[in-house]
């Protein structure tokens, strides 16, 4: 175990240094960069790295949270706490067109909700602020099309990704040149795995949303997933009942679209141990990802993160 800890320790140092390098490259090469903040564990790591990259200066770039209005309440509380620290500006964007149309994951389904309140909302916010680089927390180990994406991923003026003609990306020498209206999405955590993220959170003592830790929560079993009833917008279908079960979340998103897992892992160490023994992948709990295979590629082409 000592040997493993030692190995992982220096492995994390390498990953950290690579990510810091990427943050600095974005800050130095773009006019108006932003860091996308989704409140989850990867975003917590990103924020930590953002602070490290520019220390002792405060991070110059703001963070942007695209709020679908369906996030877990604990996530929003956590976000507001982060904003209160005051060293990083936190921007929040909600697609008001979607709000007026009453778009909801419960009535319109995951695909439409995600398109309107996440993908369209993100594009609105990027255009509105004129951001030319947007840093995100996606990792290549999450999904097959992500495994193919560059660290500096070019987007045309319509925010589209063309997976078939990506810029070659040699060494750590990133091509940051774009024309007006074009942008890049940048992924400093590309080479991190889910396990790396948790080990780093543990090593660096990074705060995360408590939803990652097991505790009795009110859940409903729906379409094979355990959905937590987080507010009174959630309407029960016939035959459904709310039960208190000891659950936690491996990923966080909109509460009606995020499946919980039964677990007793109520500490960081237990979460790590549980994951080491796990036989399922991280994104399994995401309702949005249960679309036909390769759908992530299509969503990404349309501008999804």
């Amino acid at each position: 175990m000592t040997a493993t800890a030692l190995k992982l320790h220096s492995h994390l140092d390498d990953l950290e240094a690579e990510s810091i390098h990427i943050f600095r490259e974005v800050q130095a090469a773009f006019r108006h960069p932003v860091m996308l903040y989704s409140i989850g564990k990867d975003s917590s790591v990103l924020l930590h790295l953002l602070r490290k990259a520019f220390h002792p200066a405060k991070p110059a770039m703001p963070m942007l949270h695209v709020d679908t209005t369906w996030k877990f309440r604990e996530m929003i509380a956590f976000r507001d706490q982060v904003a209160a620290a005051g060293d990083v500006e936190v921007l929040v964007h909600i697609n008001q067109d979607g709000v007026r149309q009453g778009i909801s994951p419960l009535t319109h389904g995951a695909t439409m909700h995600t398109d309107v309140m996440k993908t369209q909302a993100l594009k609105q916010a990027l255009d509105q602020h004129g951001f030319d680089a947007a840093i995100g927390g996606a990792r290549r180990d999450e999904e097959k099309s992500r495994a193919k994406e560059r660290i500096f991923s070019f987007r045309n003026a319509q925010h589209r990704w063309d997976p078939k003609s990506q810029r070659p990306e040699l060494w750590h020498n990133y091509n940051t040149f774009i024309r007006k209206g074009e942008s890049v999405r940048v992924f400093p955590l590309s080479n991190w795995t889910e396990m790396d993220v948790w080990l780093y959170i543990q090593r660096e003592n990074i705060p995360v949303v408590p939803l990652y830790f097991a505790k009795p929560r009110p859940v409903v079993e729906r379409d094979g997933a355990l959905i937590m009833v987080d507010d009174d917008r959630f309407t029960l279908r016939e035959g459904e009942t709310i039960r208190m079960r000891e659950v936690r979340f491996r990923t966080l998103g909109c509460y009606p679209l995020t499946g919980a897992v039964e677990s007793t892992a109520d500490t960081l160490q237990k979460v790590i141990d549980e994951m080491a023994a796990s036989r399922t992948s991280e994104r399994q709990g995401r309702v949005i990802d249960q679309d036909p295979t390769a759908s992530m590629e299509r969503k990404k082409q349309e501008g999804y993160f």
Partner: peptide, 14 residues
């Protein structure tokens, strides 16, 4: 990185 010539566990190759 993680070259561990000095590391106690000789099989750990990083």
């Amino acid at each position: 990185g993680a070259q561990t010539q000095d590391a106690p566990a000789a099989q750990d190759k990083g």
